[in-house]
Amino acid sequence: MKRKFLTLAAFAPVAIAAHAQTSVTLYGVIDGSVEYVNRVAASAATPTQGGSRFGMPSVGGLSASRWGLRGVEDLGSGNQALFVLESGFQWDTGALQSVPLFNRQSFIGVQNKDLGKLTFGRQYTSFFDGMANFAPMRFAATYEPGIWWMGLNYREDNMVKYTGQFGPLQATTHFSFGTGVAVQNASILLANGGAGEVPGHFSDNIGYGGSLMYLGSNGIGASIAADVWRPAAVTGQPGTMTKLGAAALYRTGPFKFTLGYRYNKGEFSNRNTLLRDDYWWAGVNYQATPALGMSLAYYYADVKAARANATGPEANPANMQQVSFIADYNFSKRTDVYLSVGYAHNGGLSFDSSATAFAFRYPTMAGQQNMVGVTVGIRQIF
């Protein structure tokens, strides 16, 4: 449930036109769980040390904990001004997820009911907007390879973004003058902290893309999306990360089926391959009762080539696979409990690796091929 806690129009001067209604909404989610994982390394730098881990992960099983403010003002004639400020935090300690404060979203914009929405600031990429509805686990924070799929740049700073909704068709496009992503992978820090906007080096750390998504009332959905990121490890020498995606879904009765494909090619500035892979996924969601939903998904990454640095030898790592399952029971629209299980082969859970900057903390132990994780948790939305 989202709560409107302040209505500024009530305090506005009488001279303001009657149609100018302004509201600010406080919203968020807290998701906490207890998790068991086997064969996880103590760190990516110490793969010979580790074992089983039992404790509380800093991110929840289904959602990353967050809070935010969302505001809108009616400007009349079908026009509105809007803003969003959203901050992530670690539910188990209360610490900020990272800096800056509004690390998840921070943007302002205008929208028209017929023409669409134009927004400016830190936002999700068009690629994310086009693909997220086709995630079998609804982009679950645990046991879905979301960052592997979308890229480290699935949120970007300094972005201009257009979103148009035309009946069942959504069109989105964006351009970032400097993505603000600090790393290209876990071993490569980007020039200027990935912020870009360096005089004389316009292409450093920019990002752009677009997507088209159809979600019909007949239960059929489809999407195509593209994303380009130009990370610069050295000022004036950007590489290129290119992603192309296509996905589809079908709903019938209590079932939803999803499948999709994502192409990825990452290149250093000298055009040597950083990472080249094809990523496939398929899933089924079943609403067994109004309160109980279950999800089962399969993920596969065909890794064709990878390099640790721009001049190093090219490797062909083993292809990664994962099977994930979620059982989610809703006590109400705001509170649910869940059990989630993941099994990964030839890699860490959620395909955690240098390509994801080990964001999920599942580095694999040396010589180990399989990893199993089980998490039980509770989530409340407000």
Rank of each mutant, 00 (worst) to 15 (best):
I147N: 00
F139N: 10
L118F: 13
T142G: 04
Q123F: 06
T125S: 15
R138D: 14
T142M: 10
A140T: 02
P136N: 00
G146H: 01
T142S: 09
Y143G: 09
P145R: 01
W149C: 02
R122W: 09
R138P: 02
P145Y: 00
A140D: 02
W148K: 04
A140Q: 03
R122K: 14
T119G: 07
T142I: 04
D129E: 10
W149L: 12
D129L: 07
K117I: 09
R122Q: 13
Y124F: 12
G116V: 05
F128T: 07
N133D: 15
N133G: 14
A140E: 04
M131A: 08
D114H: 15
P145W: 01
F127N: 05
T119R: 11
T142D: 13
G121A: 06
F134H: 08
T142R: 10
W149I: 03
G121L: 11
I147M: 00
Q123Y: 10
M137Y: 00
T142V: 07
A132F: 14
A135L: 09
L118W: 12
F139P: 03
M137R: 00
T125A: 08
D129S: 03
F139A: 11
K117N: 15
G121I: 04
T119E: 13
L115M: 13
I147K: 00
A140Y: 03
F128E: 06
P145G: 01
N133Y: 11
F120H: 05
G121W: 06
M131R: 02
T119L: 10
P136M: 00
M137E: 01
F127L: 09
G116Q: 07
F120D: 03
Y143S: 07
Q123W: 09
N133T: 06
D114S: 15
F139C: 07
G121T: 08
E144A: 14
G116R: 07
Q123M: 12
G130R: 12
G130A: 13
F134D: 02
R138A: 12
A135E: 09
A141H: 05
M131L: 15
E144C: 10
W149N: 07
F128L: 13
F127R: 04
L118N: 10
F127S: 03
F128G: 02
L115S: 14
D129Q: 04
P145V: 01
F139E: 14
F139H: 05
R138W: 05
T125H: 08
Y143N: 11
T119S: 15
D114C: 10
T142P: 02
A132D: 14
F134W: 11
F128D: 03
M137T: 01
M131T: 12
K117A: 15
N133F: 07
G116A: 06
S126L: 06
W149V: 02
R138K: 07
D129A: 03
S126C: 09
T142K: 06
W148C: 01
Y124V: 08
K117L: 12
D129G: 03
